[in-house]
Design a protein around this nucleic acid. Structure first.
Lengths: 249, 249
DNA sequence: CGATGAATTGACCGATGTCAAGTGGCGTGG
DNA sequence: CCACGCCACTTGACATCGGTCAATTCATCG
């Protein structure tokens, strides 16, 4: 259960925040703004305002009027829905270049989920009408937006399926795989999921309880598949995880 | 358990197929083509070809190359996904005016689900490029399409939540409510779900087993909430169902 | 070094799924 | 037209996964 290995622990990797110029790169790589020319990106960027958040702060709050479309520039966020009866459901994680509030901002209704900053973070925000204008000016954005929505749809359908047909252990494996692909930092020991990730977070993300997650991680740790610490998970073997995730019993 | 009541059973309502002229009305009322002028609808309709299906036939098959966008004109269909391990997941039901294959046809990849005709049915189909052209010509269609995608997204997220947080009985109630709103026929005794609906269908739709569904329906029947027959369900009191569906325990 | 909150672990239990056996209605073919 | 057989459905017994609760340990930070 010791988390100290060799000379360093797996805690506290500094999540450094890149500075202003590379913002255009982030936009250019994002699924919403990809394919725009540098001039267009410049234009897009100037239509936005930058916001800062400290770790734990809510970037948008479920139920609030949906004013703006957000794109993370640095830091990380988790997108959470709370159900009428108080359960938390973790929809997805976001890293720089990821966005949220697209549908909400365009519809102008209310945010369907809350976004919580995990690290100290920054995000560019575009108000609904501004985004709509941009889409009109650059139809590429509308096109991209549609593609993003459909991808989300596919993803959600897949998770629905998994929830319905797969046992808990497989779902946790799926969740870790997604996280390591999305937020993984390669280290010499494996892929570190580079954001505070409690057992409870993982549970909400894979649709189970923190107790089950704890037991499963323990088991995997003994098998050498992962290494864990307080709010940290390091994946030593994605292959083993994939085996677990796709086992047909 | 007797399904004969008064003078008539609840079986075999003829699902009559309306004829050609009203097609434009169906298009005009559909979420994808709403807001178009009659001339434009005419144009849209002429770009499509009509297909017929007999009950039980597959309209599109999961995994096949996604050629066309479909809109049901008469009859009913159920949209099903089968998972790698052979489980069936029922995504949704469709009635005239409902459509499927939007994303698949535009992406040109492969159908992510199968659509099975429940009744003898007809559907208009537009090939991918044709639909793309129509969208270009009438941006309203693209706009509507985007809205449809987002609605599906919201719906899917909600069902994911429900699956995660609600017990089986509530989910079955939700499923029946959706069905009675979508495919309900008012009768003097209540709302008849006007399509063959086996216990197994309901189970796949609400994420449980046919055994559980059977027990639950029995219980509701005794309480006077529904009346059931072979592949038939009649909702006598939507209010009671709503109570069950939203109970906070 | 103590406080705080995360994580672990064991005991228990309950909702649902699984399996097997049976019932009954509907359609078909003799 | 009747009988048979199929298939949807019912029902009971049972198994079990995974959730709940409580007690404890541990690590990090002030």
């Amino acid at each position: 259960m010791m988390v100290i290995v060799h000379e360093e622990t797996i805690y506290r990797r500094a999540t450094s925040c890149v500075m202003i110029d590379p913002i255009l790169h982030i936009l250019a790589d994002s699924s919403v703004f990809q394919g725009l020319s540098e001039r267009e990106l410049q234009d897009v960027r100037e239509a936005a305002t930058m916001r800062r958040y400290v770790a734990g702060e809510l970037m948008v709050r479920q139920g609030d009027p949906a004013l703006a479309f957000h794109m993370l520039i640095c830091g990380h966020a988790k997108l959470v829905q709370v159900t009428p009866d108080g359960h938390q459901v973790l929809i997805r994680y976001a890293r720089p270049g990821h966005s949220f509030g697209l549908r909400s901002a365009l519809s102008g209704f209310e945010y369907s989920l809350s976004a919580e900053a995990i690290d100290d973070s920054r995000a560019l925000v575009w108000y609904g009408e501004v985004l709509a204008q941009l889409m009109e000016r650059y139809s590429r954005i509308a096109f991209n937006g549609m593609r993003v929505m459909t991808l989300r749809n596919v993803e959600m359908q897949l998770r629905y399926q998994e929830l319905l047909t797969e046992p808990v252990e497989q779902r946790v494996a799926q969740a870790l795989l997604r996280l390591s692909n999305d937020m993984g930092q390669k280290t010499k020991e494996g892929i570190l999921i580079d954001v505070p990730l409690s057992r409870e977070d993982l549970a909400e993300y894979s649709g189970t309880t923190l107790y089950s997650v704890s037991r499963i991680l323990r088991q995997w740790e003994n098998a050498g598949v992962v290494r864990t610490g307080r709010e940290r998970v390091l994946v030593r073997s994605q292959d083993s995880l994939l085996d677990i995730a796709t086992a047909t019993i």
